[in-house]
Design a protein around this nucleic acid. Structure first.
Lengths: 135, 135
DNA sequence: CTTTACTGTAATTATTTTTATTACAGAATG
DNA sequence: CATTCTGTAATAAAAATAATTACAGTAAAG
């Protein structure tokens, strides 16, 4: 995961957790220092996940769909996880070689195990506890 | 980590763990289906870490510098870890905003904690146990 | 109603990152 | 001393990521 989807989502959610008003994508983008259209795209993903509600039209914007206490960071991780945690070889290894033939299977097993440990950690943390760090 | 350094290193090390002879970068690259110069670069890194020995010149190549049992997968991970595990925002967030000002600090804290869990898992696995999966 | 200020989304372009290629000096074998 | 490797750097190509632009749709406010 080398892209910045996770940090961007966390930034969006933290802003919403600390605000009682609707926040516009432009305001959020200004805090992140990223593009408003990109932010709206990510908000759209978070909405489909049920973490965020938005209101369209004038004075529209976003807010949390449920209390920050009920949002686990693992939910965010699971949403943005795309590529393998530890990287995947783009090249298909040589099937004529014992190692080449099996490496992807065994790497996937390894990743799954390691990722479980990571997810367990993230399950224990809520957006509330994260947002409370900001003073 | 979206690049494939970790899988490539694991592939190299597994091949070496299963061979008693020196393997050339071209042979290894053929199994991975990657570029020999890239493989030599990674071998060079693994050598600096003390995991691999190489012999230059004709009939040269690489072999493990110590028994596979003594190589922990966490050593490989620590070598290739570059960008943050869960991605870093490229943009410097807005310092005029409370969240923007502190987000990177708090994300780093979070990453550190989560990464520790991951490293603990990898510390328990040796190259030997990984290589033994290949039949 | 009509203007205004938002969201939603897609298409395109720009940028950055990653990987491959090429090249060649240096080393060891035969 | 020719051959076959490694080591390394420079460059080019490809892929992934992010920014920009554009515009239709929606809802509030005048």
């Amino acid at each position: 995961m080398s892209n910045s989807r996770f940090p961007i989502c966390m930034h969006i959610l933290t802003l919403l957790a600390k605000s009682d008003e609707l926040l516009s994508s432009e305001y959020i983008a200004g805090s992140i220092n990223a593009n408003p259209a990109l932010v709206r795209k990510e908000i759209s993903n978070l909405r489909q996940l049920g973490l965020i509600e938005t209101r369209e039209g004038k004075n529209g914007g976003s807010m949390l769909a449920k209390p920050a206490k009920q949002i686990k960071l693992s939910e965010v991780y699971n949403m943005v996880r795309s590529s393998s945690l530890l990287g995947q070889s783009k090249n298909s290894p040589n099937p004529a070689c014992l190692v080449g033939r099996q490496i992807n299977t065994h790497l996937t097993e390894l990743y799954d195990e390691v990722e479980q440990a990571l997810i367990k950690k993230l399950e224990k943390q809520t957006l509330e506890s994260f947002a409370n760090k900001f003073q």
